[in-house]
Design a protein around this nucleic acid. Sequence first.
DNA 1: CGCCCTGTTGATACGATTCAAATATCGTGG
DNA 2: CCACGATATTTGAATCGTATCAACAGGGCG
Lengths: 233, 233
Amino acid sequence: MKSVSRTEAWTGIADCRTCAVRASALFAGLGEADFELIHRPIDQLVYPPGTPIYSAGDPAAALFTIRKGLVKLIQYLPDGTQRIVRLMRRADLIGLEAMVGETYQHTVVPLHPTELCRLPVEVVKRLSQSNPQLFHELMARWHRALADADRSITELSTGPARHRVIRLLLWLIETSDDDRCDLFSREDLGAILGLTTETASRIMAELKRQGYISEPRPNQILCDVPNLKRLLD
Amino acid sequence: MKSVSRTEAWTGIADCRTCAVRASALFAGLGEADFELIHRPIDQLVYPPGTPIYSAGDPAAALFTIRKGLVKLIQYLPDGTQRIVRLMRRADLIGLEAMVGETYQHTVVPLHPTELCRLPVEVVKRLSQSNPQLFHELMARWHRALADADRSITELSTGPARHRVIRLLLWLIETSDDDRCDLFSREDLGAILGLTTETASRIMAELKRQGYISEPRPNQILCDVPNLKRLLD
DNA sequence: CGCCCTGTTGATACGATTCAAATATCGTGG
DNA sequence: CCACGATATTTGAATCGTATCAACAGGGCG
């Protein structure tokens, strides 16, 4: 169990017009006239791993664009057990439920150092009513979130533990420009895949011994991608 | 394996103004002026179990409101294996991806006799641009679909096989007005829960022997709800 | 230096799958 | 209406995979 309690840092005001992830950002389609409508500046925030961004049940006041990093979405069952339902990363939008509900559905916690833009829900609601392109972009985000969820079910919750671990590694590599990726604790690895910490650890160790991956420094994984893919057949 | 090949039946033209599921239907918020904009009549369709409504990759020309019945959403993995990712039933909307994409993401097949209203995507797009309430309703549907997907992960893909079966039975009972529910093949039961047909069958048989459920006629299950719930702790 | 936390490894138990066979059910045509 | 074959379900025994419980190694930090 982690017990990080450092608070998030405010790092400045975003200039959406020149945003680095603008091409893939929610506000990609906005014109000058729209930006005029964003009366309040957009805050940028940085969260270290382990610091909750929001929790299930909190009043849903904002959506967040992930500029950088990786977060886990946790869902709680009636009986108190928890399960990581999805991971989200750069260019993903979290807290979409703010558009239709009063409260957040998940607890969201960064696994890597994470930078966010905070989009107040009133702003997004106002803009989406006047701007058809943003409306369409929002639906595309819902669609993507749903596709991610379905993919989570089929790729990360189905099949033998070995396959699940490999599929997750390959998913992490997707956004990397070489064969390395940053991992996180074995405990989180297990929670994402519906496995125990020990099983997650065992499989990672076994993949290492068999030469499919190596771990030059803790939680930095170097993958033999082609051979890993072959293992999935 | 089933090999049903009967074709769907067209059963009439829906009158959305007096629709039985109107209160919970997509067009709930429409006024007279909006109905004027639906130039083409809305078709009602009936599908027997096993007849695909649409398949993954098909051009996405319409959304469907489920008036009655139960369908499975199937997703295919690169390696050809398939998994049922979600079930949808009365008052649910399927094919939402038609709003943002060219093709359907899943293959959708009824498990029970199913009645649908076919909503051409142009109609929904046109109406949603002029009608803020429909726009909001659409987002609420995306939200519900996503919540269903998350629930699928935590309740039906996590934990021991016994728990999964029970959670599915309780889910089926939710929309029933007594303690009975209609089931479907053990093969589908397994596919939904990520289990083999044999395991699904074994657990059903065991629950029967222990008196938690009974099957007065094939695929009609009578559940001792309170005691089943107790088994989940 | 010693403690705590994370990761690793081992032994064992349990649960689910697999393969195989018997039984029940459904649909069809005689 | 019954008989038949095809299909679905149930059951059994052996095997495999994962969880569980427990012990130990290493690193970071007070």
